[in-house]
Amino acid sequence: MYKVLRKKVLTDTGVDRVILLDIEAPLVAKKHKPGHFVMLRIDEKGERVPLTIADANPETGAVTIIAQEVGSTSKQLGRLEAGDHILDFVGPLGQAAHYPEHKHVVCIGGGLGVAPLYPEVKHLYQTGSHVTSIVGARNKDLILLESEMQEYSHEFYIATDDGSYGTKGFVTTILQELIDSNTPVDLVIAIGPIPMMKAVANLTRKYEIKTLVSLNSLMVDGTGMCGACRVTVGGETKFTCIDGPEFDGHLVDFDEQMRRLSMYKDKEKEVLIQEGCGGANGCQ
């Protein structure tokens, strides 16, 4: 059993809710590196789901996860309070992000992608890279970890679809401006919804700027045992949980990923309906 040490609601617009939990898992906290994730199962009847480690404190043994309430399991996670317990919590999984010397790194986070991006931004900043961060969301209310990101970025930009905050437009609008201003960029890291990562990769491909993306494939075990998380990268099948989750954005078959992620859409609805959360906005 893994204890919930702290809970915080990061966003609650009535439609979108994002929560942060600190879970007591000292072994995971000790081994965590940016890019890692955990698999958790809330209770006996629960499914195993992957979540990125947003932060970890080796001293207190706390592992921070940030989840967007999109379906049954994440909503159940959102109902937990400090003092509650999670049945299973295993990690850290995946390959840690690996940065060979990069002078100027542009870190792009879309929506919830900011959560997994944040530990990487912090790490890059602390190890001497020049960090430009671009954060995008549908509107102002959905911008996550703004002050944390700002603290560890040399340049910081915000883009919202509706213009309610920062630049009106997409993260690629700002990236294009940066490239046009002739600022040399050594590496782009983009984490967010697949259409965003695909758009960023398409843009940087033209300028031959190395681009890493982090995939959120469907997973069951997270240890290379099932192949549920497979993805085509450069024409080869890879397992996201052991070969990733970060891959070269110029080589990933995003359309296949998108399709595989929607595999259980009908079943996911079925669970929500069973729980009485089948309405437009689900159980809030």
């Binding site: 009847k45 499914e47 049954s72 069951v220 259980y264 079943k267 079925e270 669970v271």
Partner: peptide, 12 residues
């Protein structure tokens, strides 16, 4: 994961 008892068990 007992998917044969879905949706009582959550794994599809």
């Amino acid at each position: 994961m007992r998917a044969y008892r879905f949706p009582e068990y959550k794994t599809p």
